[in-house]
Design a protein around this nucleic acid. Structure first.
Length: 316
DNA sequence: CATGGTCAAGTGGCA
DNA sequence: TGCCACTTGACCATG
């Protein structure tokens, strides 16, 4: 197999979330799962308002999953913003708690029935390698929120439903940082541990697939997500094929996930854009070097980028 | 030395 | 309707 078995998109459905696609009062009809608020509003309106936003986000998650199935998508990354300010309360305290878990259950059952793979990618503030206790505590809290969500969705406790993060920091002392990462991994619940994966970084000062293999995978067994674009930014001269195959070898029975995006600077022919920035669309063939993988496309135009790519490359 | 942009990922809130 | 600020961390390019 030299092309991905599945192609997915992340968090936002362009066609469902564009106000211009709707008639009067478009905001009320927009389907999206990122409803949130700034701190000031949270302080004013409190947990009850967060609860209603979360409920609406969960309802819209179901709408997106429905759209996915009806439009031939079977791989999707769930937004990490489903529960605004979730670090500030317990789920059980939400006024809509019962309703929310019903919707999550409905989403999970539907995804399973329609054979959709669901994953997550908690944000760059998750630093399990940090030497600062407070940072680690915040990270664990955020990761546990993702684990709880996957449990409520009825997703397996395997990297099929991955919770993917970066090591993402070195502090000028990689052995210390990766040591911290592995030590703090032990503080996570089984819900997170069983699903956690680690992705190669895009900065020269951070970690390639091979470094993660040696310092993280060998010690705690978390599968490695190979990101093509990050590899292009930081490869230590290792060929793409080799790094991808090494990452794929860490997944056991579970189909590995890879991330794919292209350089925005090249796409827009604008050197002032950082090399790490993601393109709107993707253009090139995706070589999987014989590995069976599921490919998460990280392009700004989301599912439209996948559809366009499929047409161009004549892949259904 | 300080600021802004990048990752994730745009959205809320107010003029 | 437009525009700027917006929870978290860390790093890096630019001014």
């Amino acid at each position: 197999m030299n092309t991905p078995e599945r192609m997915g998109y992340a968090c936002i459905n362009m066609q469902l979330s564009q106000p211009k696609n709707f008639g009067p009062n478009p905001k009320a009809q927009k389907v999206f799962t990122n409803r949130t608020m700034i701190r000031r509003t949270f302080n004013q309106k409190g947990v009850d308002y967060a609860s209603s936003l979360a409920l609406q986000n969960c309802i819209d998650l179901y709408q997106i999953l429905k759209w996915n199935h009806e439009n031939g998508f079977d791989f999707f990354r769930i937004s990490s913003n489903l529960f605004p300010w979730a670090s500030e309360y317990e789920f059980e305290d939400l006024k809509d708690y019962e309703n929310i878990i019903d919707w999550l259950d409905k989403c999970g059952q539907y995804a399973i029935a329609t054979n959709q793979r669901l994953t997550t990618h908690p944000g760059p503030f998750n630093k399990l390698a940090s030497p600062h206790e407070r940072v680690v505590k915040n990270t664990i809290k955020d990761l546990e929120i993702h684990g709880w969500m996957m449990d409520r969705l009825g997703m397996p406790r395997t990297p099929w439903a991955k919770i993917n993060i970066h090591v993402g920091a070195a502090y000028n002392d990689k052995p210390m940082a990766t040591g911290n990462f592995c030590k703090n991994f032990d503080k996570l619940s089984d819900s997170v541990k069983s699903r956690l994966t680690v992705e190669n970084d895009d900065k020269k000062s951070l970690y390639t697939t091979h470094e993660l293999y040696d310092t993280v995978y060998k010690r705690i067994g978390t599968p490695l997500v190979f990101d093509y674009h990050h590899h292009e930014c930081h490869s230590d001269g290792v060929p793409e094929a080799e790094a991808l195959k090494l990452a794929a070898s860490t997944w056991g029975d579970i189909t590995p996930v890879v991330h794919y995006s292209e350089s925005r600077a090249k796409e827009q022919s604008d050197d002032s854009i950082k090399v790490q920035a993601h393109s709107d669309y993707i253009y090139r063939p995706i070589d999987t070097y014989g590995a069976k993988v599921h490919c998460m496309v990280e392009a700004k135009r989301k599912e439209l980028a996948v559809s366009t790519w499929r047409e161009k490359h004549k892949i259904i």
